[in-house]
């Protein structure tokens, strides 16, 4: 049998190539495990940090309907964080470790959340563009090789596309509203456009992990391919809104069958990744405060459940 001569690594890769899912109890190369812990937890952290810029507008939402929708959306993101942390936990990391990595700044999360949400229109732009960009990545991940991750993505994607429509609908209302509302929408697009297309990560030439990620089906398309897909799908949506995308080089390229677009300011991108965005400090400070101020609560819940166990044991004895 040919298989017997294959190394464990090769057999593992063969399973993935055949389209099998890898499950938590299966053997896996250490690098696969580590990469997945890193990627899944980063993804989970992004959901959790992502609650903050939108949570920022819950108390100021303009109508009861919008407030309820925003509350539900931010709650969904907490749920996404939970699914993803559970998926990461299957690989042998605990929730406490995950939180410690996030709070200490050791773990990364999507840089987009280090931009401020300064107007109500940002709730529209974030849903439309940020959730929109996230979906493109996440739809791809529903077919990824690691089973728990892929299944988490299936659940998450349904909600994300709802978020995107909700965000777009906020933009539509603004654009059909008074002049000051449309201006608010344009201003939000101006601020969120470039950070959104940066969400797909560095250019392919500068993205060394792509080849390995493709083999493990963490990626099926490169950063630049995904970015192009996002631009192509978003430009017509902006036209319907009657908003202009803040890129003078943006134009349809008949030959390529895609939009050409201008040069991304990668210096800004790396600055924010490295912690120098407007909101990096505040986001981490808020997470740390929530965690630290919650310590006595978690301690008490644990102590209480231990007491309950003891009491039951005494009753039986």
């Amino acid at each position: 049998m040919e298989n017997k001569t294959l190394s464990l690594d090769d057999q593992f890769q063969e399973r993935i190539d055949r389209g099998e899912n890898i499950e938590a109890k299966d053997w896996m190369p250490e690098k696969y495990r580590k990469t997945h812990i890193r990627q899944i937890s980063q993804h989970g952290h992004s959901e959790i940090i992502g609650m903050l810029p939108e949570g920022n507008w819950i108390s100021r939402a303009p109508s009861l309907r919008r407030k309820v929708a925003l509350l539900a959306k931010v709650q969904d993101e907490a749920g996404h964080g939970l699914y993803l942390y559970s998926a990461a936990e299957t690989l042998g990391i605990s929730r406490d470790e995950l939180m410690e990595q996030l709070n200490s700044g050791k773990a990364k999360y999507s840089s987009i959340f280090n931009y401020p949400t300064v107007s109500w229109a940002d709730m529209g732009a974030v849903g439309w563009l940020v959730d929109g960009a996230a979906i493109i990545n996440q739809v791809m991940l529903t077919k990824t090789s690691y089973g728990p991750y892929a299944r988490a993505m299936v659940r998450i994607c349904k909600e994300e596309s709802f978020h995107q429509r909700q965000g777009y609908e906020i933009m539509l209302s603004l654009c059909n509203g008074a002049g000051v509302q449309k201006a608010m929408a344009q201003d939000a697009l101006n601020r969120w456009w470039w950070p959104s297309i940066m969400m797909f990560g560095p250019r392919d030439e500068e993205s060394p992990n792509t080849e390995q990620s493709m083999k493990w089906k963490i990626k099926k398309k490169t950063n630049d391919e995904l970015r192009q897909q996002f631009v192509d799908q978003t430009v017509p949506q902006a036209e319907i809104l009657g908003l202009s995308i803040p890129d003078k080089d943006l134009k349809w390229n008949e030959e390529r069958g895609h939009y050409d677009f201008g040069i991304i300011d990668w210096e800004e991108f790396w600055n924010v990744v490295k912690g120098n965005g407007l909101m990096n400090e505040k986001r981490l400070k808020d997470r740390n405060a929530a965690w630290d101020e919650g310590q006595w609560v978690r301690n008490a819940a644990l102590a209480y459940s231990e007491k309950q166990v003891e009491r039951k044991a005494k009753k039986i004895a």
Partner: peptide, 21 residues
């Protein structure tokens, strides 16, 4: 609603948001 995202753990965040909803 002011608390959303700032609770002691994700589960309580979700529950309190539910109550608010």
């Amino acid at each position: 609603g002011e608390l959303c995202g700032h609770g002691p753990e994700l589960e309580t965040d979700i529950a309190l948001t539910n109550i608010s909803l």
